[in-house]
């Protein structure tokens, strides 16, 4: 364990260039996937959270189920879409970072949307009634409800990011774990373990955790400081 930490540090200072690439690619892939998931999932989840529960109960159940979609299943689905015989085959995206982003988007979108809808539903009809009664128009109401639910929504995004950086099944399937091209932290760890390089794998794991911590700390500050009165 101590050896692993030492190795992690010796890896960080100076930064090994292939490791730098892996870290940056991890951030790029998971960051893009979560950003897209937020862009789609927050409005969609807000809409969902404002619908009468009985009206959207099936949709809600499907989304809750997809929140637990196994990464390998999501990966397989995207693989089939992007493979040469798939609908999106001609785009030749398989084994590229873009393919990995698509796969992680599929995994994180249900989480962001589902948890956003829960946050909004918790605020509830009473908040909407209050805003209506104060004479707010539809767009202002939506915006205010998003702001009122901001803690829950940021929580949704944090959970989505956690899922994206942690998963390995989907990115390895559609990315292929190609060194210098589609290798990210988790897939690198899998490889190192296979090679029997447990210390190095552990070092990578610690770095991944540190990155995750730094990003979540940032998001948390956004959440706490996001009063935006």
């Amino acid at each position: 364990m101590i050896e692993a930490v030492r190795q992690a540090f010796s890896l960080l200072f100076p930064l090994d260039s292939s490791l730098t690439h892996i870290i940056l690619l991890t951030l790029y892939v998971s960051g893009s996937a979560v950003a897209l998931a937020a862009l789609i999932g927050v409005p969609a989840g807000t809409w969902l959270g404002l619908q009468a529960a009985v009206k959207v109960r099936w949709l809600q159940r499907i989304i809750y189920t997809l929140m637990g979609l196994p990464p390998v299943v999501g990966g397989l689905f995207v693989y089939m879409l992007l493979s040469r015989r798939g609908i999106l085959g001609p785009l030749e995206l398989l084994f590229t970072p873009t393919a990995m982003i698509i796969a992680q988007l599929l995994l994180t979108l249900p989480i962001v949307m589902g948890l956003t809808s829960v946050a909004v539903r918790t605020k509830g009809k009473e908040a909407v009634d209050t805003l209506l009664s104060l004479g707010a128009e539809q767009r202002l109401i939506l915006w205010t409800i998003v702001k009122e639910s901001r803690y829950g929504i940021l929580g949704a995004i944090i959970a989505g990011f956690g899922r994206a950086v942690a998963e390995v099944g989907a990115v390895i399937m559609v990315g292929g774990n190609i060194e210098g091209q589609t290798r990210v932290m988790t897939t690198a760890i899998v490889l190192e373990v296979r090679k029997g390089e447990f210390a190095f794998a552990m070092a990578l794991g610690i770095i991944l955790l540190l990155i995750s911590f730094a990003i979540n700390a940032g998001l948390y500050r956004l959440q706490a400081g996001g009063r935006d009165d």
Partner: peptide, 21 residues
Amino acid sequence: FQKSVLLEMSVYDNLAYGLRA
């Protein structure tokens, strides 16, 4: 309302909300 909902903002902003709208 019987169960009033105050917005998670300052007292001032709660009062100004409808006027700003």
